[in-house]
Design a protein around this nucleic acid. Structure first.
Lengths: 222, 222
DNA sequence: CAGGCATATTTGCTAAATGCAACTAACCAG
DNA sequence: CTGGTTAGTTGCATTTAGCAAATATGCCTG
């Protein structure tokens, strides 16, 4: 009835490798852009995915073997130029994971040519991460589940790109009150042990960006 | 090749009516949800729209007869539940216009039942407007092209939902440096005239949320 | 076991930003 | 000229952020 539009979901999966912000990329096996690096992504499976977020989780599971502790919708990139097959829309998500995850990581600072407009999508994700870092504990998702305040500060400095004052940082983090102390300490080497923290459990009150029915075989027609 | 997905663009067009934040709604002539109120929206026209933003502007032109001074992508709402016809994705935008625009306006505070998940989309737009108002001059787009600082402050209070201090507000606005004075004054009644301001001209450096070719008849295949 | 070294964590002070209230300015009505 | 009303500014108290030094706590060495 209407000209077909290609709808995909792409995920900017970020972590830290050696203190550098990196993004997971996959070499495309098929056309278009066969052989080039691209974000993990795929078509929406209308039968399988209740909504786009489900699709993002499925794609990360299938292509990366993980379920990230943080995932949010970034934006939708659309147009008649980004995919040679025609008019397309990519619902882009960005996800943060701890550095342990196995994957092909590339530093976000020096990216070669990427398929589609994926370089622009990554740039938008980095911008979003940076701006949200100014008033949230998002960067904590880039660390292992437990961490010290010194480690956390280092990540913030890495993400924000500028050094932070130690006492101000700790004041701010503590007044945000989003971390829990963990009984037990941790020593990096031959010095005073540092208190260990973890993110507080909290509900991610997503104001329903998507509405999905419990996944079932049959749907109400089309 | 892949199950068809319904792709639409919906716009939350907001303004102020008698100092109250309102949204433009249209009564749907056709199924689904015939006769119910809904956001202005429509299908993407792959031949006509270079990208989703183009579609949003086209829809506002066709259905509202306007071109808003401010438009930004909000989020994409998707899933198998929001449209009875099947799996759908709505790329939602939000736009701000001055109060002179003719339309069917409804206060955002008391909305009756709306079609699809449009109530949730409006809620997300209001939240976004509120949060951006804390550090930008977005609310100025809700006013006529020229305005006084007192009028602007009133709008901010309306949008943010709390009263603001006069001197702090003026300090903040002036240091943001996004307004230009307009030579000439304006008196509301029998009191001291107020200085008139307008938004500075500035480029909206959209980091390419969409890539579109110059609109032409033929495209590069499908 | 004392002293040195390295990092963690706190404390004290200064400077900047914000909030509050009073004050002055400009206009109109009478 | 006086009073009323809104515009716009100024002065200070309070809060917040930035910076530097001091203190705390471990390990290591001798």
């Amino acid at each position: 009835m209407y000209p077909s539009i290609i709808v995909t979901v792409d995920v900017v999966l970020m972590t830290l490798c050696l203190d550098v912000l990196c993004v997971a990329l996959i070499r495309r096996p098929n056309a278009p852009f066969a052989g080039e690096l691209a974000l993990p992504g795929g078509y929406v499976h209308a039968q399988e995915d209740g909504n786009a977020e489900d699709a993002a989780y499925r794609i990360l599971r299938e292509k990366m073997g993980i379920r990230p502790p943080y995932l949010e919708q970034l934006a939708t990139f659309s147009g008649n130029r980004r995919d040679p097959r025609g008019w397309s829309a990519s619902i882009a998500y960005f996800a943060l994971v701890s550095p342990t995850t196995e994957a092909t990581w590339q530093p976000v600072s020096k990216l070669q040519k990427l398929a589609f407009d994926h370089a622009a999508i990554i740039q938008a994700a980095v911008d979003r991460l940076r701006s949200k870092s100014a008033y949230s504990v998002l960067p904590a998702y880039l660390l292992p589940e437990t961490f010290t305040l010194a480690e956390l500060q280092k990540i913030y400095e890495q993400v924000l790109g500028s050094p932070l004052d130690k006492s101000s940082f700790r004041r701010k983090i503590k007044e945000l009150d989003l971390l829990d102390q963990v009984a037990g300490s941790f020593q990096v080497g031959n010095q005073r042990p540092a208190q260990i923290y973890r993110l507080k459990k909290m509900m991610t009150f997503d104001r329903t960006l998507s509405q999905s029915a419990p996944r079932k075989a049959g749907r109400s027609g089309q």
